[in-house]
Structures are given as structure tokens and as C-alpha cells.
Design a protein around this nucleic acid. Structure first.
Lengths: 191, 191
DNA sequence: TCTAACAGACCGACCAGTCTGTTTAAAATA
DNA sequence: TATTTTAAACAGACTGGTCGGTCTGTTAGA
């Protein structure tokens, strides 16, 4: 029988919904309505809600990593400027729709002390993102714009987790400028 | 009729449970079992789950602010050292029980795009905490250990939201040392 | 003919919240 | 002071709805 639903489409819709409502608060039914699937179709394609979420995390992180690679790739701007622009854009993007924030950060916050499989998956993606960031951090260190005496990976970890903290803080505010300024202060201080 | 349950005790238990499981995943029933209350007693004391949670946030933030005042109050240590020690202790404390993390951060992450009343309450407490931090930041600026050219409140905001980000990151890890190191790097860079 | 893709009725468990009582201490009344 | 009234504090059965997941089919392509 021909497939009526593309897995990618389902994952995309589910990603949106999970990012907006979180894991627990989002019901399977809502996904079914949003995608037009039936229960039968859904559970034929996915083992469980948990397995879907883990796949969603993977989908989300893969796209995020692609975005990082694209936005941070070498061009005429200095490395530090590319990093700053990247995070500035991210703040706008992530809060644009419903103050959602980043799924990786939300998943860790919500599931970190409940579900070990989800926590492990989230952590793996977190590490991948940090590693994705690292080359540009190294470049900025070489250019003298980030402190070269700090281990590059630690620095990338610090920058990215601080960004998540700042992003989450912004959810309660109506604007995004203060978050961007905090990022700017952070990056200029880290030299 | 005499009260059988003290409101403070209920709030304390509920705080623990919410911190561990989050808002959505924690059922009223679990609170009833943990406290020994009946449904009748609970709904006589609290209007709803939402109202309880808002009260729990208040309870949690009040205790947190007291802790900040206590731990950061002037002593023989320099201000920057008090700040560092404070966050170092916080990382141990918050992750000691079940990798819970901080309720303010978790509440913002989980509810930030779902429930406006909860988001508003959380945001208010977030601001209070930043203001609680500010005097010590000012002191550290005067002592030349934090960059005096940055607005004190912004600096406090940056430090604290970065801390939340780092704390959340730690949930996926088995140890707490790397988090403490990130805090140390952050604080020494911010001079 | 076989089986993956689908449809949707159905399941028990649980959810937040209500409702009907009962207990009991304090306020009102005699 | 003795008695009655009132209402807050409680107990727990109950409600309607939702949850994740299963089951029994049907359809259609290999």
C-alpha cells in the first residue's frame, strides 16, 4: 500500500507542537489532528510517544546542526562576529513563534529528572551542538577575539549553555533586545 | 475545626514534587499521597492546581531570596568570591536530589509558552532574584573584580541566566565539577 | 496471496475538579 | 453559663473528559 504520510512531515509538525507545549502536555491526539493521521497510522509508524519524541529531538538537532554549519561557515566576517550574529538571529527565531525557546533546552528542563532515555538523547545532541560550535570558537581564539587560554570546547560549552539560559529568561519578557545585549556582553567579555 | 495540615508543610512537599516532575506531569493525587491530605482538604485550601503552583513558586522564590541574602552578605571574603561560592554551592544543591534543577528555570521552560499567569509569576520572581544579586555585583565592581563599565543589573541578569543555562546543561551529566568550572570561567572573564 | 499502511472503535488508567456529607471549634443566643 | 447555630476543615465517592495505547478490521500494492 502506498504511504499516505511522509515521516519527515510528521516529524516536522510534531517538532513544532512539542516545542510549543512540551512533552507531557502534548497529547498524541493533537498530533493526529495536526497531521491528519489516524491512531492506526500513527502507531504503525511510531512505537510510542516516547520514541516519537526521541526521533523528534534527533530531527530537531540535525536541522540545528545544519543551521550552525551554514551560519558559522567562514566568510568575510570575523569568527566572533559570525558567532554573535548567529545567536542574535537565534534569539529572534526561537522566540518568534509563541516564545517557544529551544527544544533541546526545554526537553532537558522538563525531562531531565523524569526520563533517562530522553535525557540521554537530549544530552547527546547538546554535545553535538557544542562540537559544532567549537571550530568557530577556535577560529575566534586565533583571531584574538576569544580568550585563547581557555579550552575551546569548554568555551563553546559556556557560550552555548549561557545562551540557553538567556533564551529561557527572555520567555518572560516581551522583547528580544535585552537578550541580544546579554549575548553581546558575554561574547565581548570572553576575550 | 482545628487545622490538621499546615499550609507551609503542604507547600514544602509540593515544591519538592513540582521541582522533580514539573507542572504537567505531577498529578494532584501524588501531592495528596505525599502529604496525607484528602481531596476535600486540598480543594478547601487551594483553588486549583494552577493556584497551588503559583503559591509554590512564591514559596520557593522567597526561600531562594533568603538564601541569597544569607550567602552573599558581607564577610571577610571578597564579593566576587562570595558570588562564586554561592553558585558553586547552588550547583551541588540543585542537582543533588534527582537532578532537579531550579524550579524558576524549569517553570519558565515548561510553562513559558503555555500559561501566562504562571509565566508572569515566574518572571516576577526571576526579576526579584536578579535584584537580590545586584548589590553584591555592585560591590564586586567597586573592588575591580567585575567590569564596572557594564550596568550592574544587566551584569547580574547575565550571570544568573547563564547560571541557569549551565545548571540545566549539567542535568545530562553525571558530575557537577564541569558546571562549577564554567561558572568560574564566566565570573573571571566578566572583569 | 501476503503484508505494510491505514482507519477508527475501544480500553483501562488517570486527570483535575465537584459534591455530599461529617466533624468540631468558635460565635451567637438564651 | 448552657445551649444552639454556623461555618471552616476535612473525608472520600464520584464525574466527565482525556490520556497513551491496543485491537479488529479494510485497503491496496508488491
Amino acid at each position: 500500500m502506498n504511504q499516505k504520510f511522509r515521516r519527515e512531515d510528521i516529524l516536522e509538525k510534531a517538532t513544532e507542537l512539542f516545542a510549543c507545549k512540551g512533552y507531557t502536555a502534548l497529547g498524541i491526539n493533537e498530533i493526529l489532528v495536526a497531521t491528519g493521521m489516524s491512531k492506526g497510522a500513527f502507531y504503525n509508524a511510531f512505537k510510542s510517544k516516547e520514541q516519537l519524541f526521541i526521533e523528534v529531538l534527533d530531527f530537531y538537532a540535525t536541522h540545528g546542526l545544519n543551521r550552525i554549519a551554514r551560519k558559522l561557515k567562514t566568510d568575510q566576517r570575523k569568527a566572533i562576529k559570525r558567532i554573535e550574529d548567529f545567536y542574535s538571529e537565534m534569539i529572534d527565531m526561537q522566540l518568534a513563534v509563541n516564545n517557544q525557546g529551544c527544544l533541546i533546552n526545554s526537553a532537558m528542563a522538563e525531562m531531565g529528572s523524569i526520563n533517562t532515555s530522553i535525557t540521554q538523547a537530549t544530552c547527546k545532541h547538546y554535545n553535538d551542538i557544542i562540537r559544532g560550535l567549537k571550530p568557530t570558537v577556535v577560529e575566534a581564539q586565533k583571531q584574538g577575539d576569544l580568550n585563547a587560554s581557555i579550552d575551546s570546547e569548554r568555551l563553546a560549552e559556556l557560550i552555548h549553555s549561557s545562551f540557553y539560559g538567556i533564551l529561557n529568561r527572555q520567555k518572560g519578557l516581551a522583547e528580544t533586545d535585552s537578550g541580544k545585549e546579554l549575548i553581546r556582553i558575554l561574547l565581548t567579555s570572553l576575550n
